[in-house]
Nucleic acid binder design. Structure first.
Length: 493
RNA sequence: GGGCCGUUAACUCAGGAGGUAGAGUAUCUGCCUUUUAAGCAGAGAGUCGUUGGUUCGAGUCCAACACGGCCCA
């Protein structure tokens, strides 16, 4: 494939010439004592650089990104993980041999450098090179320096090039790392224990979604990639781990879109002796402090829209939202048959067994969710779509559950956990019926989990927060693929 | 699954109404010891996503397919 590429052939030829001269193209090296970012920040504001004759040599290394050749001297930029710095190589400083070697190098090659700092006429801090060595030879050329790499498909397929030449992409993933680190420490500070539960489950539970199926040869049994860790985390609460959290991947065998990737990252956490009300306050605090830490402000723009995360956030019940934001008349809200009819009229694909709870949820997704721009908690979801949540005392058709929306997207989902084992068994039975009626997303009876509940789950609240969507919001990313390093794509050929 | 758009040199992009493919960057050769999208002179570089079709002739028109993007379900 690349064998036809003349640029690659030229580099191979040059490499061979260097080898013939006894140059090791891929030597071992551990002498990058001074990172470029440190050098730059250390001397950025200093007018009086140490005199070139007396200054100690700075030793650094990085990838050659640009070269401006003047014959007997040349300027270049070298980039490492912390920054990019200009270097100045003069024949009379490094000697003819090193100079000739350096002239043979290509953009993309790694070099080790030793030198002293000076400022050019335009004031740019520059390393006057005293010693230079090739550290690793690149055979393929980097994308163009000015436009970078813009082809979306290639950016995802060759993310390493994207990261290398598009600084804003690198920033997104640095921010992502800081977001996860912040959340982890926020949870640790509040006494939550970080745990890891199975990614491969014999019964995929804890969410309404289609699973990926796999197979264990030795055990001779099918397994499913988890769609959620919920049922395992609750087993841990039963076991006395009263505050647990897990930050990890879930897998859902569904469509790919601007906000869906088959594997995505969730933080799920459970707290004994708490209610969904407590979790809303907790979420408000977590997300607003996170935004403050990551963006330095609670008001920022997301895709041109002004978002304000200043607490307290609006709370509206599911039914109120349908009435006030969705414009549904009370006649529909209170009439199960009318609700199902309306959902069908709006084009929702309801299955034979689907009741009013499902119908209203479909309508909600269509008419209310797009309107939830500023952070909003929606509370009191129908029991029909909440098989693991505690039934509401005020209305037996609803649950003590909430979802958080920002910019029209669901960010979090939490509820007071159903801890009545007999009720849970009945709910599973309802799900089984839906499954038999053709709902392949309906949840599957997990007898082992029900048995665990029979040993006693304390009053508990639990929640999942979609990390990718949170990262999108805080990095102003238009698509989930911009915050996942290697989004799922079809093979090229 | 449906609709719309895209795919041309290593990268970023032109290519009017069908007549043997162009630019900038990068690369190669030469000149140049403070440049920074360095400059000057010259050169090389393409299965125009794939496969068919229409035509004397297809990057261009038509069809199917592949991959990607956006919207809808």
């Amino acid at each position: 494939m690349e064998d036809d590429n003349i640029l690659r052939q030229q580099r191979i030829k040059k490499s061979q010439e260097l080898r013939d001269q006894g140059v090791d193209l891929y030597p071992s090296f551990n002498g990058a004592e001074n990172k470029i970012g440190e050098i730059l920040s250390l001397f950025a504001d200093r007018e009086d650089l140490p005199a070139a004759e007396t200054a100690p040599l700075l030793r650094t290394a990085g990838r050659l990104m640009t070269v401006r050749d003047f014959g007997k001297s040349l300027f270049f930029h070298v980039q490492d993980g912390t920054g990019r710095m200009q270097g100045y190589l003069k024949k009379d400083q490094v000697g003819a041999e090193t100079f000739a070697l350096f002239k043979k190098l290509d953009i993309g090659d790694f070099v080790g450098l030793a030198g002293v700092l000076f400022r050019t006429r335009t004031g740019e801090l520059t390393l006057l090179v005293k010693e230079a060595a090739l550290l690793s030879k690149a055979l393929l050329p980097l994308p163009e320096k000015f436009h970078g790499l813009t082809d979306v498909e290639q950016r995802y397929r060759q993310r390493y090039l994207d990261l290398l030449v598009n600084p804003s992409v690198r920033q997104i993933f640095e921010t992502r790392s800081r977001i996860i680190a912040f959340i982890r420490s926020f949870m640790n500070d509040r006494g939550f224990l970080e745990v890891e539960t199975p990614m491969m489950q014999p019964i995929p539970g804890g969410a309404t979604a289609k699973p990926f199926k796999t197979y264990h040869n030795t055990l001779d049994m099918p397994l499913f990639l988890r769609i959620a860790p919920e049922l395992y985390l609750k087993r841990l609460v039963i076991g006395g781990l009263e505050r647990v959290f897990e930050i990890n991947r879930n897998f859902r065998n569904e469509g790919i879109s601007i906000q869906h990737n088959p594997e995505f990252t969730m933080m799920e956490f459970y707290q004994a002796y708490a209610t969904y009300q407590d979790l809303m306050a907790f979420t408000e605090k977590l997300v607003s402090e996170l935004a403050e830490a990551v963006r330095g402000t609670l008001t920022f723009s997301y895709q041109g829209e002004s978002i304000d995360l200043t607490p307290p956030w609006q709370k509206i019940s599911f039914l109120e939202a349908l009435r006030d934001l969705g414009g549904l008349p009370a006649a529909v809200l209170n009439d199960p048959i009318r609700a199902v009819e309306l959902a069908r009229e709006q084009g929702a694909q309801l299955r034979p067994g689907d009741g009013p709870g499902k119908a209203l949820t479909k309508i909600f997704e269509q008419v209310v969710e797009p309107k939830l721009r500023q952070p909003t908690f929606i509370t009191g979801y129908p029991i029909e779509v909440s098989p693991l949540a505690k039934r509401s005392r005020e209305n037996p058709d609803l649950t003590d559950r909430f979802e958080l929306f920002v910019a029209g997207r669901e960010i979090a989902n939490g509820f007071t956990e159903l801890n009545d084992p007999l009720d849970q068994r009945d709910r599973f039975m309802e799900q089984m019926k839906a499954h038999e009626a053709g709902d392949d997303e309906a949840q599957v009876m997990d007898r082992d989990f029900v048995q665990a509940l029979e040993y006693g789950l304390p009053p508990t609240a639990g929640e999942g927060i979609g990390i990718d969507r949170l990262v999108m919001l805080l990095t102003d990313a238009p698509s989930i693929r911009e915050v996942i390093l290697f989004p799922q794509l079809r093979p090229e050929n």
